[in-house]
Design a protein around this nucleic acid. Structure first.
Lengths: 210, 210
DNA sequence: CATTTTATCACATGATGATGTTAATAAGAG
DNA sequence: CTCTTATTAACATCATCATGTGATAAAATG
C-alpha cells in the first residue's frame, strides 16, 4: 500500500486530490496539509509517505525550499511538484532540488494517479510541456538567440546595463547619451518584451529569454 | 494532416507502425525506410514529414548521426527516437543532437500515436524511465550550492518576490505584511549581500549566488 | 536569565524609475 | 521619394525605491 502525502494551500484542490487518491486501490492518502511546516511536523510523528505531491506557491516556506528540507531529512520520499508554474527557472530549480516529477495543475485526477504509479515503478512523471522545456535545455547549447529578440543593438546595450545593476544615470554615462534617451530606450524595451519594470527585464535576460 | 516518417531497420516493426499510424485520423505515414541514407533521398524529392520516428541502431549511418544531419538540413522536422537503448549516453547524445522525444521500443502503438499528437501540440514525449534518467541528470548537476546564504526564510521569500518582478507593495500583499516590513527586510538583505538595489539582488539570485 | 536574532511596523525624505507627450535626425526599405 | 525604424533628446508627473531613525515582541541562543 503506497502512502501519499499532499502539500497544497488551496483547500478545495487539496481535498479533492486527497479524496480521490484515497479511494484508489493500493494507495492511501492520510495527510494533506497546506504548508511545508505542517508536513514537517507530521513527518516527525507518523509513518513517512512514499510519494508527496507539492505545490510551489505556499504560505511560509516555498515548495522548492520545502522539498530541499524534506529531501535532506527523508531522502527516500519521492516528491512530485504539482503547480501552475511552467517557467524554466522554477522547473529546473525543482528538479535540481530533488523533485522526481513535475506536473502542471491542470493534470486530471486519473493522470495524477497514473503518475504516482509510474513513479513507484521507477519512472518520472512530467507534463508534456515540462518535458519539452527539459529537453530544450539539452539541445539549446548553441541555437539560442531564440525567437525574435527584436531588440536593437542599442536596446541590448541598455539591457546589459540594467543587468549590471546600473541606474539610468549610470547607463547614460556609460554610453555617453542623455538620461532621457535611456528612458526612451527603456520604454521601447518594455513594449517589446511586454514588461513594465527593470526587475522583469533583468530576470528575463538572466534566464536567457532575451 | 500530419505527415509521419519512419526510419527503422526491422521490417516487421517498421511495417507495423506504418500501417497503424496510416490508419489514424489526422495522420499519414507515406514513408518508412530502413536507413538514414534512404530517408535523405526521400526528403530531397518529397514533401517533408512533420514528425519522424527514428531508431538508433541502423545499417550505415547511426540514428543519432542521422538526426544531426536531418536536423541541420530540415530543422523544422521533429524527431522522436524510438529505440531499445536506455543508457544515459545514448539518451543525452540524442537529446543534444536535437531529438524532441525519446521512446523505448516496448511502447505500444496507441502510445506512439499519442506521443506524436503530444509532440504536435508542443509537448515532448518521453518514456517514464527515460524521464527518470533525464531528471537524475539534474539532481546531480547541483554541486555549487552556496549554502552560506545567511538569508533567513523570510528574507528568501522577499528575494523570490523581487525575482518575480514584484513591487514592495505586491510583496507585502503576497505575504500579508506591511510595506514597511518589506522595506525593513530589504534593508537587511542589502546589508547581507552587500548590494544596494533590487536589480543586484535579482541578478545575484538568478546567477545562483544566493 | 540576558543577549541576539528575527520579524514586525511607522514616519520621513531625497533619489530613481515608469509613463505620457513630442520631436529632430539619419538610415534603410519599398 | 516616402514611409518606417532606430537613435537621440526634453519636459512633466506620479509611483516606487533606498535609506535613516526608531520601536515592539517573540524566538532562539548562550
Amino acid at each position: 500500500m503506497a502512502i501519499i502525502g499532499i502539500v497544497e494551500d488551496n483547500k478545495k484542490i487539496r481535498d479533492l486530490i486527497q479524496r480521490y487518491l484515497d479511494m484508489q486501490d493500493g494507495m492511501t492518502c492520510p495527510v494533506a496539509v497546506d504548508s511545508v511546516e505542517e508536513m514537517l511536523e507530521y513527518l516527525d510523528e507518523h509513518q513517512r509517505p512514499d510519494v508527496m505531491l507539492m505545490d510551489i506557491q505556499l504560505p511560509g516556506m516555498s515548495g522548492i525550499k520545502g522539498m530541499e528540507v524534506i529531501k535532506s531529512k527523508y531522502p527516500e520520499i519521492e516528491i512530485i511538484m504539482l503547480t501552475v508554474y511552467h517557467d524554466s527557472h522554477k522547473i529546473f530549480d525543482s528538479l535540481k532540488a530533488g523533485a522526481s516529477g513535475y506536473l502542471l495543475k491542470h493534470t486530471s485526477l486519473p493522470e495524477i494517479k497514473e503518475s504516482i504509479e509510474n513513479l513507484l515503478k521507477g519512472g518520472a512523471p512530467m507534463s508534456p510541456q515540462i518535458a519539452r522545456k527539459v529537453i530544450s535545455h539539452f539541445n539549446e547549447e548553441a541555437p539560442k538567440k531564440n525567437e525574435d529578440s527584436m531588440l536593437t543593438n542599442r536596446e541590448q546595450d541598455i539591457v546589459n546595463g540594467l543587468v549590471d545593476g546600473l541606474s539610468y544615470k549610470m547607463i547614460a554615462d556609460r554610453y555617453d547619451i542623455s538620461i532621457d534617451t535611456v528612458r526612451a530606450h527603456i520604454r521601447n524595451i518594455y513594449k517589446k518584451l511586454h514588461v513594465n519594470s527593470k526587475a522583469e527585464v533583468i530576470a528575463k535576460s538572466l534566464r536567457g529569454e532575451i
